[in-house]
């Protein structure tokens, strides 16, 4: 479901065209920049969820059997990897200088929109997996 959301978001955002303007009509940054940041801002809050779910899974570790512990380890790793994917994207994202030709700047933003959308899919996938596992653990064990 979330994967389709990002696909439509990607296509929808890129179909918009033109230079972005602020409310007082002053030209600011490339429209591509805002498209990328729109996706970034929509998924950045999930970093808190990734942390909270990882913390919750840790509560089950001491009472879990070997197989269950392996599942907890695996899903915690997914959450960590998704968190790191977001931080890594932010470290590497670099708004192109206005002296770079417009077509090159647009190509950069297309690529970055694809990258940040992939990060979003990774985050949602990890959250979904963690929530399913927590539900299973709550049914089978006590923290």
């Amino acid at each position: 479901m979330h994967y389709l959301y990002f696909l439509f978001l990607f296509l929808g955002l890129w179909s918009c065209s033109g230079k972005q303007h602020t409310s007082d009509q002053q030209p600011t940054k490339d429209a591509g920049y805002y498209r990328v940041m729109h996706v970034h801002d929509s998924i950045m809050p999930l970093t808190g969820d990734l942390f909270k779910l990882r913390k919750k899974l840790s509560l089950f570790e001491s009472n879990a059997d070997t197989i269950m512990r392996f599942d907890i380890f695996r899903i915690k790793k997914m959450l960590e990897d998704a968190d790191e994917a977001m931080m890594s994207w932010m470290r590497t994202f670099n708004e192109p200088n206005s002296s770079i030709p417009e077509n090159q700047r647009n190509s950069y933003y297309v690529q970055e929109l694809e990258n940040i959308s992939a990060v979003g899919s990774q985050m949602y996938a990890a959250i979904d997996s963690a929530q399913i596992l927590i539900q299973r653990l709550e049914n089978e064990t006590q923290p």
């Binding site: 801002d41 950045m44 999930l46 970093t47 808190g48 969820d49």
Partner: peptide, 10 residues
């Protein structure tokens, strides 16, 4: 607002 761009921590 936990749905703000930074989430609870940011």
């Amino acid at each position: 607002d936990e749905s703000a761009p930074g989430g609870f921590i940011h």
